[in-house]
Design a protein around this nucleic acid. Structure first.
Length: 604
RNA sequence: GCUCCCGUAGCUCAGUCGGUAGAGUAUCUCCUUGGUAAGGAGAAGGUCACGGGUUCAAGUCCCGUCGGGAGCUCCA
């Protein structure tokens, strides 16, 4: 998430000032508290504290109360610049501030990053009794802040300076708005967002589940979710076949040496599931024996397929596609519904191309991904070019190759006219990538589709093809996955549509609702006819009234409800109700079938 | 993995000061056969996540484990 700045956030001053007021309130309650940093963030602010005990929700109420009292004082904010020595004296009891001051004195910003301008001014803002190391800006006066326009939302842990090895502080998050009405609107939005949460809808719509007995982070797909998933897979398979992809199928395991060759073993050892089989082995050259790992990615398997026979430039590009299930031992605290799991299926493909083909192929891949997103009705995503962080040593391959790859990606994005942001440190360890990012209902960002250029694995696996000149050449690989993972993609799809999937994806496309028992037989006939045409139709023959059946179908977000009474039975028709509540009246069954087929054909 | 919060019927939740559990809904049975978002009655459903501990007595208090949530860290 891009940092909030005074330039891009009109409420920056308000929220930044609220952070100061909160820090004052906390210090009044806990005079021994050590304060860290407290910036504005999207929709609010936070402040990090080192406190003598964990905070409870009741503490938040007390802090809020005290904040209101401080606001009533209508204090003004006073700015002053201080020397490093003065600052050290002023904050002599605040170790975190002292660390910040040392950083500032060395030309860093408050996050310890190198500041944009070389000469860092050390400044403070003071209101009432509270003076904080701060570059501002703030509101003129606390009189400008509505005392009922804010709320403290939660307290959670946060490492000092985001570093796992540093102390864990308590972070209090708050939201602040110019008025009570705007605050309430925001809180209402949060509630609405929760109703779209894929975890909740996944349960309500019977799409997927998790089982303690199976294990964390491993989704079990229920029949309705599996139908949705299968529909997506079939769609993408067809698109891929039309675009020259070749299906392959590979096992879920691979020998450890495969991942040593690829480099995954050294870089991602911690997140690879422990060995599943160790074969006894007396070979002193290879004391580890045969260790099999659950595959954390599909590329090495596809590479082996490439190596199965000598390749000619005439064979390229070669595009191997597989819905490949991979396993990654994510930290327990990272698991989140379908969005972060330990077992997931990548709609993977690896393209082996000549260097000359790279840019064209890359563009075609981006266009395919955009087509998939458009078909899904996804508009709320952004593209991010992930480059390596020059300071980090996890990346393999030499600089020249990275430069070529990075340029190829940026050129392609620009040729396609795809707006993108550049993010350093977001590359894969073997190459730069173009990611498609979406935000979930609670504002968290998740990577969906991805395209990666890779000169390194071909090198490591010594891939070759014979060129027009009869010489051996090294191919370039493109790794790509439009959905990214079926799990995460479906999670986002659920939230995007709030569970009301377009008809072609809906697990149940129509429910036939007989009004009385004597209509059940005809209802079943209708359903049989539609099912024979490949449509997903159910009959609600439960012992309840039509109104209740409609309510049930409505809550399940079924696109079409087909009501059948005497009139419809007589006319060989169905009375069509949409989940929007719209009543289309009676249609001949054949006419309804044509309409549903049209929806399916057009991905609506 | 770390900090904090949470775990009671399939689901959503109540359960006071510690005295061996309750609602709505879903399920099942019966009645009802109805025209666009809940017809009625009855029944069944719980090792209060799990394991220890304190106590005459634990859903309730304490410790641990597992699971979930928020955030941090991480993310091929």
């Amino acid at each position: 998430m891009a940092p909030v700045t005074p330039e891009n956030d009109p409420l920056y001053r308000l929220r930044h000032s609220m952070a100061h007021v909160m820090a004052q309130a906390v210090l009044e309650i806990f005079p021994e508290a050590k304060i860290a940093i407290g910036p504005p963030v999207e929709n609010g602010f936070y402040y990090d504290f080192d406190l003598p005990r964990p905070l409870t929700p009741d503490d938040l109420k007390d802090i809020e109360k005290r904040m209101r009292r401080i606001l009533k004082g209508k204090h003004t904010f006073a700015y002053r610049e201080v020397s490093a020595a003065e600052a050290r004296d002023l904050f002599k009891d605040q170790p975190y501030k002292l660390e910040l001051i040392e950083g500032l004195a060395q030309g860093q910003d408050e996050y310890g990053e190198k500041a944009a301008s070389a000469s860092t001014v050390i400044s403070t803002y003071k209101h009432d009794t509270f003076e904080d190391l701060c570059k501002g800006p703030h509101v003129e006066s606390l009189a400008d802040i509505a005392p009922d326009g804010f709320k403290l939302l939660r307290v959670s842990g946060a490492y000092w300076r985001g570093d796992e090895s540093r102390p864990m502080l308590q972070r209090i998050y708050g939201t602040a708005w110019p008025s009570k009405a705007e605050l309430e609107h925001y809180l209402w939005q949060l509630e609405e967002a929760k109703k779209r949460d894929h975890r909740r809808l996944g349960k309500e719509l019977e799409l997927f589940m998790f089982s303690q007995a199976v294990g964390s982070g491993m989704a079990l797909w229920l029949p309705k979710g599996a139908v949705l998933r299968d529909t997506l897979e079939r769609f993408l398979r067809e698109v891929q076949i039309d675009n020259g992809y070749l299906p392959v199928v590979t096992p879920h395991l691979g020998k450890i040496d495969l991942y040593k060759t690829s480099g995954h073993w050294y870089t991602y050892r911690d997140s690879i599931f422990p060995a599943v089989k160790e074969v006894e082995n007396d070979d002193p050259e290879n004391p580890e024996g045969e260790i099999y790992l659950l595959k954390p990615m599909n590329c090495p398997h596809h590479i082996e397929i490439y190596k199965n026979e000598p390749r000619s430039y005439r064979d390229l590009p070669l595009r191997y596609a597989e819905f490949g299930t991979v396993y990654r031992y994510e930290q327990s605290g990272e698991l989140t519904g379908l969005l972060r799991v330990r077992s997931f299926t990548v709609d993977d493909a690896h393209l082996f191309v000549t260097p000359e083909q790279l840019e064209d192929e890359f563009i075609k891949v981006v266009e395919l991904i955009l087509y998939v997103f458009r078909t899904m009705g996804f508009a709320d995503f952004k593209a991010r070019v992930g480059l390596r962080d020059q300071g980090d040593t996890k990346y393999i391959g030499d600089d020249a190759i990275w430069d070529i790859s990075q340029n190829a990606i940026i050129n392609a994005a620009e040729k396609v006219g795809l707006p993108y942001v550049v993010a350093e440190g977001e590359a894969a360890f073997y190459g730069p990538k173009l990611d498609f990012i979406f935000r979930d209902v609670l504002g968290r960002e998740w990577q969906l589709g991805t395209v990666q250029v890779d000169y390194n694995l071909p090198e490591r696996f010594e891939l070759e093809y014979t060129g027009e000149d009869g010489q051996k050449h090294r191919p370039v690989m493109i790794h790509r996955a439009p959905f990214g993972s079926l799990e995460r993609f479906i999670g986002t799809l659920i939230e995007h549509h709030a569970g009301a999937f377009p008809t072609w994806l809906a697990p149940v496309q129509a429910v036939v609702i007989p009004i009385t028992d004597r209509h059940v037989e005809y209802a079943q006939q209708v359903a049989k006819q539609l099912k024979a045409a490949g449509m997903r139709v159910e009959v609600d023959d439960s012992n309840s009234r039509m109104n209740a059946k409609i309510r049930t179908a409505q809550k399940q977000k079924v696109p079409y409800m087909l009501v059948i009474g005497d009139k419809e039975q007589e006319a060989e028709a169905v009375a069509v109700r949409l989940r929007s509540g719209e009543d289309l009246g009676a249609l001949p069954v054949s006419e309804f079938q044509a309409r549903l087929q049209d929806d399916i054909n057009n991905h609506r």
